[in-house]
Amino acid sequence: MTDPEFELGRVYDRDEIHSNWGGSRYSGIAHSRTTPNVMIFSDPAKGRPYGYIDDLALYDDEGPLVRYTGEGRVGDQILAKGNAAILNHREDRRAIRLFEAVGYVNGSSARLHKYLGEYGLDLSNTHIYAEAPDENGDLRKVIVFQLRPVGATAEPSIEMVPVMPGITYTDFHEAAEPEPIEVLASKLVEPENNAASAFVRKAIEETMVRRREAELVDRFRALLEADGHEVKRCQIPIPGLNAMLLSDVFDVSDNVLYEAKGQADRNSIRLAIGQLFDYRRYIDPSPAALAILLPEAPHDDLKRLIESVGLELVHEEEGRFVGWPVKAR
């Protein structure tokens, strides 16, 4: 068996893909036993009526994002077989290769697939759960993996990108624990990755900040829910663009929108200010208050900055949240 390089943006048929890289010719998730790859195949236009709700061209505050629905056509999906192959791809040292259906082999019902590039699970939130119909029309729970590009990627076909009208409010869902930082570091510095030490340090630092932010959000959400508040997130599609914004915490009960950051430095606070004002443009009715959520108190000058633009500040201090509850001005 040959093992040629994947060619970004090239269109392949399934026979060519699996003859070269292994894996089942008939699975949406093809876990190869002969090469270190997990190949995933998306056909959003065809799969959506059956609960496959792939979004291939999303963009949030962390950058490009793909949402890919796991396998299982009837009943609740579980983290087994192909779904487990995606979840464990780093531990198994396998690359996730994303293909998009773009046409048909001449004179056949067999699909052609465009190679979009290598992806990896989002370290801070590997997957969420959603309700979707199965092939019998019954609602069930599906696993939606959250993937980030690894290196360069090809653009998906524009006609395949789902259009999502209006703002939706999505529940928080439990996700698998991110890999410990020590494991991530050891994998990044292995010889085959050819990663420079500066890149490794940056990746570790960014992952630590993102984990710290996620843990802060979890603690604050627990506080709100214990106090009887309804907690959601705002999912905002951008008109005219294949992009979506996703907020951190929306306190439905008090109508307060929060943006969380994993550290209380100037750049993080500046970014949070811009994000909150950006989100507010699309939310109707507008939130009663906008607030920045931090793991510790920022410098006094940054407190004055937050106050000067009319935002509220909530920060953690010795196990309690100073500045909460937020009152609308």
Rank of each mutant, 00 (worst) to 15 (best):
Val102Gln: 00
Thr126Trp: 15
Asn83Ser: 09
Ile128Thr: 14
Ser108Met: 07
Ala101Tyr: 06
Ala80Phe: 08
Leu116Ala: 04
His113Lys: 04
Arg67Leu: 11
Gly51Glu: 00
Arg48Tyr: 05
Pro49Met: 08
Asn37Cys: 13
Pro49Asn: 04
Lys141Pro: 00
Gly51Val: 00
Val144Gln: 14
Lys114Tyr: 00
Leu56Thr: 02
Leu87Tyr: 07
Gly63Trp: 04
Arg140Lys: 01
Ala80Leu: 11
Leu112Val: 01
Leu123Trp: 13
Lys114Val: 00
Gly151Thr: 10
Lys141Gly: 02
Arg97Met: 12
Ala84Thr: 06
Val142Asp: 09
Arg140Asp: 01
Thr35Gly: 06
Val74Leu: 05
Gly70Arg: 03
Leu116Val: 07
Ile86Tyr: 02
Ile128Arg: 11
Ile143Trp: 01
Met39Phe: 11
Ile143Asn: 00
His127Gly: 03
Tyr119Glu: 08
Glu155Phe: 10
Leu98Pro: 01
Tyr52Gly: 09
Gly151Trp: 07
Gln146Met: 12
Ala57His: 12
Asn125Gln: 14
Leu87Asn: 06
Gly117Pro: 01
Val38Thr: 07
Val144Lys: 07
Asp138Ser: 14
Asp138Pro: 03
Asp76Asn: 07
Ser109Tyr: 13
Lys81Arg: 13
Ile40Val: 14
Ile96Val: 13
Gly103Ala: 06
Glu131Val: 15
Asn106Glu: 15
Ile158Asn: 14
Gly103Leu: 01
Pro64Arg: 09
Gly75Met: 08
Leu147Thr: 05
Leu98Asn: 02
Asp122His: 04
Lys81Asn: 13
Thr69Arg: 07
Tyr59Ile: 05
Ile86Arg: 03
Leu139Asn: 12
Ala152Ser: 13
Arg140Met: 05
Tyr52Ile: 15
Pro133Tyr: 01
Ala84Trp: 08
Leu58Pro: 05
Gly51Tyr: 00
Phe99Glu: 05
Pro36Arg: 05
Glu135Tyr: 14
Pro64Met: 07
Asn88Asp: 13
Asp92His: 06
Glu131Gly: 12
Leu56Arg: 03
His89Pro: 00
Val66Cys: 01
Asp61Pro: 06
Gly70Gln: 10
Arg48Asp: 07
Asn88Cys: 11
Arg111Lys: 09
Glu91His: 14
Val66Thr: 02
Pro49Thr: 05
Gly72His: 04
Tyr119Leu: 04
Gly117Asn: 03
Ser108Ala: 06
Asn37Thr: 14
Leu65Gln: 04
Ser42Gln: 06
Glu155Trp: 11
Arg33Ser: 13
Glu131Thr: 15
Gly151Ile: 09
Asn125Pro: 12
Ile53Ala: 14
Gly51Asn: 00
Gly70Glu: 11
Asp55Cys: 11
Glu118Val: 11
Gly63Arg: 00
Arg140Gln: 02
Gly120His: 13
Arg73Asn: 14
Glu71Cys: 11
Glu155Pro: 04
Arg111Met: 07
Phe145Leu: 12
Glu135His: 13
